[in-house]
Design a protein around this nucleic acid. Structure first.
Lengths: 150, 150
DNA sequence: ACAATATCGTTGAAAGTTCAAGTATTCCGG
DNA sequence: CCGGAATACTTGAACTTTCAACGATATTGT
């Protein structure tokens, strides 16, 4: 066994908290905006992107999605009219996903309740210092995770 | 907008780290043990339970699963021989899930590489103090998340 | 310039999750 | 103790994700 008793306990606590957080976020978005947290993250990523466009490849990497998964997701979002796809002209293989005006509106609408909950769960429960510590810790862990798959 | 610039940045960093972590854990378990992180967590929960039994209801709550999802999951795990189900005798409606010997073996086998990775990603990247801080923070967030759905 | 190889994205089928409906048992008010 | 409401679980259909295979364009090495 690779972890001792106390490490195991810390690890379980960490994962339990993470799970509860993700569940709460997903539930809120589904209930209030009718969109999954994953789809919301796609809209959010495009929203923050210059010109609200991104190549499928880049978006897939950012989301840790398989190409296939992103294609299906894009098809779904496209059917709602929230994104549109077009061939990249710099790379004939590439496809660009564009956030439509409707998509912008949807992202904004969904973000209201979402950010409200984030404030409530994350920022209202922590001192700024504590939160910073947690953010730094998670960033380090995430970085190690990315590295580990190289 | 409910969060200011710097809060938003912290929040994004946090979520990115969490995502990367979960992805890495899932990938390792699939690649090395042929089991999803979610199924692994079910085995783990039963493994830690007195007698290695739990009622469907309790397991579902603990995992934040819908009853339906747990039934499907139990069917799948049962088909591998890792779990068996039987009627509860204290409550005629209830069903108990039991971790079989094969399930115990599977859980142990899978845990080796898994815990190895956890050590590498979580414990090797943090001072104990920093980690404790993160654990406490996440625990508070998780608790708030549980409360929020009452 | 050409062939081999790698990258980008899509497709359809298999596997997993969610959702709405259904069966069986227990709980509770009167 | 009876009937209605609640709880526990299952089922099958709809939807989402994964997986393996494929067509198309770009890159690399010779």
């Amino acid at each position: 066994m690779s972890l001792n008793r106390s490490e195991l306990r810390s690890w379980l606590m960490l994962m339990t908290g993470v799970q509860s957080l993700l569940d709460a976020l997903d539930r809120q978005l589904r209930d209030d905006a009718g969109i999954s947290h994953d789809d919301y993250r796609i809209l959010g990523s495009l929203y923050r992107s210059p010109n609200r466009v991104k190549r499928m490849r880049d978006l897939a990497r950012e989301m840790s999605y398989s190409p296939s998964r992103l294609t299906h997701a894009a098809t779904r979002l496209e059917s709602h009219g929230w994104v549109s796809r077009s061939k990249s002209n710099s790379d004939g293989r590439g496809v660009e996903v564009h956030l439509t005006d409707l998509g912008v509106a949807k992202a904004r609408e969904a973000s209201e309740g979402h950010l409200e909950l984030v404030r409530q769960l994350v920022f209202d429960t922590q001192d700024p210092d504590q939160l910073d510590a947690a953010v730094v810790a998670l960033a380090r862990i995430g970085e190690a995770a990315e590295t580990s798959r190289a």
